[in-house]
């Protein structure tokens, strides 16, 4: 039996040999953070370790006085008796897998990740390991993503058709990661400016500060009085759907960009006109490919369809796999 380097504790995934937690959900002395989404980065810990690019995003989430140490990808540092390094996870800007080595054992906690190219963050790096901790958000064989450039083309065509009919196009997507990725991918089709819901404005600014090229944008609140948005694309978080804020977009058409849109029922139930299948999580084929490429003998599945993934790995792939209880949601940030 291999050494249990990382195990679930009351406050989060705990590495006893290094005396630190990964993405803890309660305050701890030392926290290593995979990325800046709310279910992975919670306030109150004494010190945070994270990749440089996510530091500005974490500041917004954790408050200006939090102690955050930025490290480079691939730069090893010591925590207790372990050597820790961060490696690109391809999920959002600054997202990392956490590699932990002690006593000849290597574990990788991958946080949320994807393999598809994304102009807003570094490409996923395969990190060979003995035990691989993976998400399972979209662990069903129906989840397969088309190239995002093609989906951006669909979004652009939808926007153009709406504009021709004088209809504002309101595209719902998560404010951190998805919005910026779409704004970068749409550059291939247009350089026309778009409007942003207020919640997205500081996050888009942080990406611009990191040098990411994206469509020009203005806050919705900066549009002149009487502006009808009839030819505009507006990005907004899903929580804005059905709110009074939407009233200003007369005759709008709505879309939602998410991996969940692969299933019609998800789109129709929420009443969106269009669903665009774009995800910042791995799809089923890439999930299996990644597990094979890490060479891991053992896989621990955290959030999503862990039941399906664990059974499939054990029965079909012949890889020892178990579920790992965590409080990560995964679903809500796609």
């Amino acid at each position: 039996m291999s050494l249990e380097l990382i195990r679930p504790g009351r406050r989060g995934l705990f590495c006893e040999a290094g005396d630190f937690h990964i993405d803890p959900w309660r305050p701890v002395p030392r926290a290593v953070i995979t990325h800046a989404h709310a279910d992975h980065a919670r306030s109150g810990s004494d010190i945070y370790y994270a990749q440089h690019d996510s530091v500005p995003l974490l500041r917004k989430r954790l408050g200006p006085h939090s102690l955050i140490r930025g490290v480079d990808y691939g730069e090893p540092f010591r925590l207790g008796q372990t050597t820790v390094s961060l490696h690109p996870a391809g999920h959002i800007l600054g997202s990392s897998q956490v590699r932990v080595e002690a006593g000849g054992e290597v574990w990788v906690a991958s946080g949320d990740y994807k393999r598809d190219p994304d102009p807003t963050c570094a490409d996923f790096e395969v990190v060979p390991c003995d035990t691989f901790i993976t998400e399972a958000t979209f662990a069903l064989p129906i989840y397969r993503w088309r190239p995002v450039a093609a989906v951006a083309g669909d979004i652009h065509a939808w926007w153009q058709a709406n504009a021709a009919a004088d209809r504002p196009s309101v595209l719902f997507c998560y404010a951190l990661g998805k919005a910026q990725r779409l704004m970068a991918e749409l550059l291939a089709y247009t350089d026309r400016g778009i409007y942003l819901h207020g919640a997205m404005v500081p996050l888009v600014a942080a990406y611009r500060d990191a040098g990411i090229a994206m469509l020009p944008s203005l806050p919705v609140s900066a549009a002149g009085r009487g502006h009808r948005f009839s030819e505009d694309l507006i990005l907004a978080p899903p929580s804005a759907a059905g709110s009074p804020w939407m009233r200003r977009f007369r005759g709008h058409s709505t879309g939602f960009a998410s991996g969940w849109m692969r299933i019609r029922g998800n789109r129709r139930r929420r009443g969106y006109d269009r669903g665009f299948v774009v995800s910042d999580h791995v799809d089923w084929p890439d999930l299996l490919r990644t597990i094979r490429e890490t060479g891991a003998r053992r896989v621990l599945a955290t959030h999503g369809r862990t039941d399906v993934l664990v059974r499939y790995l054990n029965e079909v792939e012949g890889v020892a796999a178990e579920p790992l209880e965590t409080l990560y949601s995964g679903e809500s940030d796609d």
Binding site: L140, P141, I142, R144, I263, R264, G265, W284, R305, R311
Partner: peptide
Amino acid sequence: WLLEETYSSVGDLAETLSLLLDT
């Protein structure tokens, strides 16, 4: 069992089968 899990997540047999055939 994997088809059953998928079906229970999609809910519609016609849709489940068309999506699975994409694989």
